[in-house]
Amino acid sequence: MNKHSVGSKNRNLGFTLIELMIVLVIAAILAVVAYKFYVSYVGSAQNSHAKATMLETTQPMPPHYVAHSKYRGQPSVLLLGVRTRSSSTVADQSA
């Protein structure tokens, strides 16, 4: 038997370092692409949730404003410098 033919059998049993590194690079590229899609998906889901929450919160506001001439839970501190119906500012009224 030839020595080279016996030795070549043992060399084909495993992977070389280059082959393993190529597989790791491909896996890393796929992970980066998947992560970008995941972040985009989570961001759009959070935006949808925020829009739904804001819509749910603001729907009862116009009928309450029509009935009471103010928004529910409206602090007067936020109205400083805003003209009211009496044409004076809230800051002038509180002073």
Rank of each mutant, 00 (worst) to 15 (best):
M21V: 14
A34Q: 10
Q46D: 15
R72D: 03
H49L: 12
Q93R: 03
V77A: 07
G14T: 05
V42R: 04
S44C: 11
L20K: 14
V66E: 05
D92N: 15
R83L: 12
I29D: 07
R85G: 07
V32D: 11
V90C: 09
T57H: 06
K36I: 14
V6M: 08
T53S: 15
Q74N: 01
L17Q: 01
V32L: 11
P60T: 08
S86H: 02
T84L: 13
A67N: 10
A52I: 04
G7W: 03
L79F: 08
K3F: 07
V6Y: 13
V77S: 06
Q46V: 15
K9M: 10
A27Y: 08
H4A: 00
I22H: 04
S86Y: 04
N2F: 01
I26G: 13
L30E: 08
T57L: 06
P75I: 09
I26S: 04
L78F: 05
P63N: 09
K9N: 03
L17R: 12
P62N: 06
A31S: 01
A50L: 13
T16Q: 02
L20V: 13
H4T: 00
G7V: 00
G7D: 06
R72V: 07
N47D: 04
Y35E: 15
T84I: 12
Q74P: 10
V90K: 02
T58A: 13
P62H: 01
N12I: 08
G43I: 09
E56L: 06
T57E: 02
I26M: 08
N10D: 04
P60D: 00
L79S: 02
A91R: 02
Y35D: 11
I29K: 04
N12Q: 03
T58V: 14
M21D: 15
Q59A: 05
F37W: 07
S5M: 14
S88C: 12
S5F: 07
T16P: 05
V33T: 14
A67D: 09
S86T: 09
H64N: 07
A52S: 10
K70H: 06
G14V: 00
K36M: 13
E19I: 00
T57I: 03
Y71G: 01
G14D: 09
S8W: 06
L80M: 13
L79M: 08
S5I: 01
N2L: 11
M21G: 13
A52R: 09
T89N: 11
V39A: 07
Q59T: 01
G14Y: 07
H49M: 10
V82M: 10
G73H: 00
M61F: 00
Q74H: 09
Q93E: 12
Q59P: 03
Y38R: 03
E56Y: 08
Y35L: 14
V42Y: 06
T89V: 05
N10H: 05
R72T: 11
A50K: 15
Y65M: 01
G14K: 03
L17M: 02
V42A: 09
P63T: 12
V23A: 14
V77M: 08
S88K: 04
